[in-house]
């Protein structure tokens, strides 16, 4: 009993996990959709259109963001200024309505579409036959598309951060690290040689994922594949840096494993937008999610792979990831040197 209590770090983690999970699932994370941003294309307004739009504004899950010109539809969706566009095509009393959804996130698109149809139906008195729907970027609503970036975001953290940290900490635990440090090999050199195999491994995994995604799942192939590759390499570096950081914080393999599970796996699964849309979370958690590297990566991958955006569209995300990598490398090196005294 005392033995367990003295191992304070493990204890804290064991006690925190259930609390955090309960909190996340109970309050924060929901698969229901809210905060759906809707814009309308309505050249002529009439009572019916005004009725629909005011219902959307009143709906607690929707936010009405105003009207746009028809030519701006694509740009608005691509830049994530809206999740759904409602196009009123005729100035008949009950116009034909076209719904254009951003389907790069399947969950959001499906729920939002159902919700919008409901609103139109109640306003139009059963006139839903006039509604047509277009799913952009993922026309078949394949959820496999949606999962590819998420899986990638998780796998690289798993391989790079977790396995690297455990393997470095293992050297400390078995005492081989000490022998290496007495040798003329520079400490940074030791670390880099430990990283190389995991970097190579990650590259193989990346190649395999891309082959499956583009070959078997039929993800549309385009020029953005190159961007996908180099942004993924950046993310792999970021994960490796995280791995070194954990290894400098812990002395035991078990602790390294727990810390990476707690600090990285949980947030990646819960807060990165991999399973649960970030827009649905309470504001506090959305802020927390800004700190999760996978969030930026998964978002970038969705835009590059599914929406086929050019790199200029995800520049901000890439800068954030680059900045994170730099910061973590600096902290990790400093901590590593401190340890050597």
């Amino acid at each position: 009993m005392l033995h367990i209590l003295r191992d304070s770090r493990t204890m804290v983690i064991v006690l925190l996990i259930p609390v955090i999970l309960m909190f996340l699932f109970g309050f924060a994370i929901s698969t229901e959709v809210n905060n759906v941003n809707v814009v309308a294309v309505a050249p002529v307004q009439n009572d019916y259109i005004r009725g629909v739009l005011s219902r959307i504004s009143e709906n607690q899950y929707m936010t009405f963001k105003g009207c746009i010109a028809p030519k701006d539809i694509d740009a608005t969706l691509r830049q994530s200024r809206a999740d759904a566009v409602m196009v009123f095509n005729h100035d008949r009393p009950v116009p034909k309505i076209e719904l254009i959804m951003d389907a790069s996130n399947t969950t959001v698109a499906q729920s939002a579409a159902a919700c919008l149809r409901g609103i139109i139906a109640s306003e139009g008195g059963g006139m839903t036959e006039f509604v047509t729907m277009r799913m952009l970027y993922n026309p078949q609503m394949k959820s496999s598309y949606n999962f590819v970036p998420g899986i990638m975001g998780m796998l690289f953290i798993l391989i790079c951060a977790m396995m690297t940290s455990v393997s470095i900490v293992r050297e400390k635990e078995t005492g081989t690290m000490e022998v290496l440090l007495v040798s003329p090999v520079r400490p940074m050199h030791v670390i880099i040689t430990k990283l190389v195999p995991y970097f190579v491994l990650s590259c193989v995994v990346l190649a395999a994922i891309l082959l499956i995604a583009y070959g078997l799942l039929g993800l549309p192939l385009s020029a953005t594949v190159l961007n996908v590759v180099w942004v993924s390499l950046l993310y792999i570096l970021l994960s490796l840096a995280l791995g070194i950081l954990i290894s400098t914080m812990t002395e035991r393999q078990v602790t390294a494993l727990l810390v990476s599970a707690m600090l990285f796996m949980l947030p990646v699964i819960m807060l990165s937008g991999m399973l649960f849309p970030i827009e649905n979370m309470p504001e506090v958690l959305q802020w927390v999610s800004y700190l999760v590297p996978a969030r930026w990566y998964i978002d970038t991958m969705r835009k590059l792979m599914i929406e086929q955006l050019p790199v200029s569209g995800v520049w901000e995300n890439i800068m954030v990831m680059g900045g994170m990598t730099l910061l973590i490398v600096i902290i990790a090196i400093r901590k590593f040197n401190d340890q050597l005294e």
Partner: peptide
């Protein structure tokens, strides 16, 4: 210390080769 490391051998209290 870098020079020293080239001229010494060290055997630790714990067995510390790669198992």
């Amino acid at each position: 210390s870098e020079q020293i490391k080239k001229h010494i051998g060290y055997m630790s209290q714990r067995f510390s080769l790669y198992d």
